[in-house]
Write a protein that binds this DNA or RNA. Structure first.
Lengths: 138, 138
DNA sequence: GTGAGTGCAAAACATTTGCAAAAAT
DNA sequence: ATTTTTGCAAATGTTTTGCACTCAC
């Protein structure tokens, strides 16, 4: 009984094989594959020999998102990608050449966003900042 | 022959009724309806008595985007929205209560983004910043 | 006239849902 | 035993595409 079980219980979700497996997959992805689509997760399950339906993958990912275990991103790709929520917020830089995703967090920008929202009579509930970049030739 | 025709020709697109009409609709939308989905445009066409197919709306909007006449946004809504490109870049604040979209442009954030990208060995090609906000109760 | 543009219906995706079977507590 | 969860297939919503027809030049 691994750590995953505790996380699931804490989130109020029953410990089932699909949920444990999906959580493991999301947690085990390396730096380069941190952001997986539902389809990616589904294929990873099949490769691992687990017989889980794609519909279940979608359901579980949505439950994880609701539970705060996972963050959903809608980049310009036409489909959602998911990543394990590790507490601290961060933004993304997506390299248009390599597809690499770099995470960053800048206090200056964060602060400025709050000021701008407030200036317009709003408070920020959430935000999404994605830089689409290209490698600098030197 | 209105201004639209010139814009279309300049973009290398033949002047056809659907293209002119769609351009007019996008240009004529008030502050509140600046961001229209393909479906929105389609309905506006029908209301104006124009018999244009939804597929054509999609095709034309994509052509406009390629030509730089229009900007496509993918907010968290599950479908794309389009707005007339007026040259200057701006970011968006979307009110989760009312659905209102406020545009803003902050030099501090813009500058900071470039610095961050450069610091990671990248140059920014494009970026997307959306603040999801709620009205401040006072 | 000829090639680009259009409408329609069908296809293609990503995602969701209904329901009976299976599993968790 | 009961309540959740799952798998499958079918439905959904958005966007794209194939093709015969039409229009702009």
């Amino acid at each position: 009984m691994a750590v995953e079980n505790q996380e699931l219980r804490k989130a109020g979700l029953k410990v089932t094989l699909p949920r444990v497996k999906i959580l493991q997959i999301l947690e085990s992805t390396g730096e380069t594959t941190q952001h997986m689509s539902a389809e990616d997760v589904y294929r990873a399950l099949l490769e691992a020999g687990e017989d889980v339906g794609l519909a279940t993958v979608y359901r579980v990912l949505t439950q994880f998102e609701t539970a705060g275990l996972v963050t959903r991103h809608n980049f310009e790709t036409g489909h959602s990608v998911f990543e394990i929520a590790r507490g601290e917020h961060h933004d993304h830089m997506v390299c248009l050449d390599s597809g690499d995703v770099v995470e960053f967090n800048d206090p200056v920008i964060e602060q400025r966003q709050r000021e701008i929202a407030e200036h317009h009579g709003f408070e920020i509930v959430d935000h999404s900042l994605v830089l689409y970049v290209r490698k600098l030739k030197r």
